[in-house]
Design a protein around this nucleic acid. Structure first.
Length: 718
DNA sequence: GTGCGACGATTTTAG
DNA sequence: ATCGTCGCAC
């Protein structure tokens, strides 16, 4: 046997057990910071070098492109071989690959284009409008959620029971028509990528047998994030001789709201009887931080059980800061960051985490004032920006004139006098003749059945795209992209409509897009699948929307939501806005089962911290234009007091929390009161005087109510 | 076809 | 407070 010590040297016992697992299926319950990526990478290497598995027999699935490319890179450097034979990718990437290879068997045009969620939204909205339904009654967002949820459950329109419920019946009809529109134009949305692949394998025994035989080693990362469809797909991909190696952490399941099923971890145990390995040694955080996080997550009663430990240092206590308001909170955090920098540490070692994006603004302003560089995660990514999508819509039309979604997007961008009436006429004619909007436009122009003005305008558009199509034969991808941006006059369009710096940014992005097409090299797989560089580029753009903010890889303080912090680590972490209603979020408190997910989110946040962890909350906070008086998050009180250092004990300073009684006996804003029926609450508003005063109280359990002071019989409580 | 004011909603998000 | 969408007037 080859010397394989390099595969095992740096592993602890549990990690080694997982990596060297024999013929059994394996479930690795990998706690935060316990080295799960290392285990996955070494497992792949082990399969190839020790079990002599062919690289072609390996399928490794992740949730993000970032995780996939990191894994690929690490396997490559560990094995010192190129990894092009291995299937490492996201569920969507892998499904895309299979569908391209077997397009006709899956009932698809091999040049199908992928719809991102924005494209999908627009197409659904248009479908609703075309059906002359009321968008108030059928909000496109909701319908989109409905359709995706059905697809995630593997359900097609014909299989939905509407039980005579007219609302459901309509929803199903929208689903049906949306799907028909997709198929007419060879468009595939994200959920469809998975569902089609599932159906392909399910209904095609030859293909199924082929892949089941081929993939002898199937590895799945972040298994707690899989939805029903993904688990069904995993089950179809694994044959009786395949080994499943599944890594996950039920305590880090924070995506239940978008369909992820933690239960899949238990299902996997039941279905495959895997050997279970727990990775509980943490290499990231101090003992104090770890213990505090353990104690918080311990309040959940639906855990598989796991207790992280470390042989590292005790470290500093967890610091809890009680701010008077959100401004003071931000000020405090920036002060501590300044201390950190003054002690010679770097901005990029600092993570400021919050529950919702709206909270970022305060920190941005404060950091700006303090002249500390920062980077905000979230927002639109490169290929999601409007100007990029506009330009790509032209590219899509050149690539596939049947793409009605692309046609609709840019037929009047820049405005060229093709109004809603003309487009409606085209849609109607297209539907009547069962044609694409593009073909229909050409016929309408030829037959002269359009009013003069519309005819001219549409003629300009058709000539433009037709001209570009023609030029496509003479030039490469970069060349055609360049000409698209030049000839469509998109830049002039933004210039005329928007402020100069906004237009400037769009121009830069479009320049960047040209550069990206010029430098684009399609993968060998895409080439083998017979994809043109253009088709390959469009697929990539849809599948990998790109970095949130390019180039900003400087030394920056990192601002992000708790969700996007998953998988990252920082020596210094702030968790801001630790208030009931904000975190845990009000909506999660109301729905049963959601609270434990919020607690897992708190756990994820805390376990991001390596050396120092600060939690902070504000006693009063302006939100949606009004001032709210919150209480500290329950997660704060779940911390073991021995590990906590209160930076400002509430008794000391708090004005909002120690309200004086006014002369007329009315409670002050922000004070806590008890009502016989509604329970405890916080006074939000006081109007009028004496017994006739109307008081708005936000009750902890009963919600916000208006009461007349004289009748309400309120007791003040501490 | 564009511009403006009213209106409403406002957790988290990768592919 | 703020942002996006809708309807209406020019």
């Amino acid at each position: 046997m080859d010397d394989v010590s390099h595969l095992l040297d740096e592993l602890n016992d549990a990690q080694r057990e997982a990596v060297t697992m024999g013929s059994n299926h394996c479930l690795v319950l990998a706690g935060a910071g316990s080295g799960k990526t290392r285990v996955l990478v070494h497992r792949i290497a082990w399969a190839i070098q020790v079990q002599h598995a062919s690289p072609l027999s390996i399928l490794a699935v992740t949730f993000t492109n970032k995780a996939a490319s990191e894994m690929r890179g690490r396997v490559e450097s560990l094995l010192q071989i190129p990894t092009s034979g291995l299937w490492i990718g996201t569920f969507h990437g892998i499904c895309n690959r299979m569908l391209r290879l077997h397009a006709s068997e899956a009932g698809l045009n091999p040049t199908f284009q992928i719809l991102d969620s924005d494209d999908q939204f627009r197409l659904i909205r248009r479908t609703i409008r075309e059906m002359q339904l009321d968008e108030g009654e059928f909000p496109p967002r909701q319908v989109q959620g409905f359709i995706n949820a059905r697809k995630d459950d593997g359900v097609r329109p014909d299989h939905i029971e509407h039980h005579g419920n007219p609302l459901t019946e309509q929803m199903v009809e929208i689903y049906r028509r949306y799907q028909a529109a997709c198929e007419r134009s060879s468009l595939v949305d994200f959920a469809e990528l998975l569902l089609r692949t599932l159906e392909l394998l399910r209904d095609n025994p030859t293909r199924q047998a082929h892949y089941q035989q081929r993939f002898a080693h199937v590895m799945i990362d972040e298994f707690q994030d899989t939805n029903s469809l993904q688990y069904a797909l995993v089950r179809l991909l694994c044959g009786s001789d395949s080994q499943l190696f599944v890594v996950g952490d039920d305590d880090q399941s924070i995506y239940g709201w978008r369909g992820a099923k933690v239960e899949n971890v238990q299902h996997f145990v039941d279905d495959y009887k895997p050997q279970v390995v727990r990775l509980e040694q943490n290499y990231r955080s101090t003992a104090t931080i770890l213990e505090a996080a353990n104690r918080v997550i311990d309040h959940n009663d639906d855990r598989m059980g796991k207790n992280l430990w470390t042989d590292g240092e005790q470290g500093d206590p967890v610091r809890v800061f009680s701010a008077y308001n959100e401004d003071e909170e931000a000020e405090f955090i920036i002060g501590r960051i300044q201390d950190w920098l003054d002690s010679g540490r770097n901005p990029s070692e600092v993570g400021v985490l919050y529950r919702s994006n709206a909270q970022s603004r305060l920190f941005e302003q404060a950091l700006l004032r303090a002249d500390i560089p920062y980077r905000v995660y979230g927002g639109l990514r490169f290929f999601e920006r409007a100007e990029i999508k506009d330009a790509l819509a032209y590219l899509r039309l050149v690539h596939n004139p049947l793409d009605d979604a692309a046609f609709e997007r840019v037929v009047n961008v820049p405005a060229r006098g093709i109004g809603e009436r003309t487009v409606a006429h085209l849609r109607e004619a297209a539907r009547a003749s069962n044609q694409s909007l593009w073909d229909c436009s050409r016929h309408q122009l030829a037959s002269g059945s359009l009013p003069g003005r519309a005819r001219n305008a549409l003629g300009v558009f058709v000539d433009l795209v037709a001209g570009l199509k023609q030029q496509h034969d003479e030039t490469d991808l970069g060349g055609i992209m360049h000409r698209i941006i030049e000839q469509t006059e998109l830049i002039q369009h933004y210039r005329a409509r928007e402020t100069s710096d906004r237009a400037e940014a769009r121009q830069e992005n479009l320049d960047e897009l040209i550069r990206a097409t010029e430098n684009y090299e399609q993968s060998i797989e895409d080439e083998q699948a017979g994809l043109s560089p253009m088709a390959s580029f469009l697929t990539q753009a849809a599948l990998e929307a790109g970095e949130h903010q390019g180039e900003k890889w400087q030394d920056c303080v990192q601002l992000m939501t708790l969700h996007s912090a998953k998988g990252l680590e920082f020596p210094l972490v702030f968790m801001a806005g630790m208030e009931e209603g904000l975190f845990p979020h009000q909506k999660s408190v109301e729905e049963p089962g959601r609270l434990s997910e919020e607690r897992r989110l708190a756990y994820v946040g805390m376990t991001r911290a390596m050396e120092l962890l600060f939690l902070s909350y504000a006693e009063s906070r302006r939100l949606h234009g009004q001032t709210l008086f919150g209480r500290p998050s329950r997660f704060v009180s779940e911390l073991p007091p021995a590990l906590v250092e209160d930076i400002r004990p509430r008794l000391q300073v708090s004005t909002a929390r120690a309200p004086r009684q006014t002369n007329d006996g009315l409670p002050n804003l922000g004070s806590r009161v008890r009502h016989a029926k509604f329970g405890d609450g916080t006074v939000l508003t006081v109007e009028g005087q004496g017994d006739n005063a109307r008081i708005q109280i936000n009750f902890d359990d009963a919600g916000s109510k208006w009461l007349v002071f004289g009748y309400a019989a309120l007791d003040r409580i501490a």
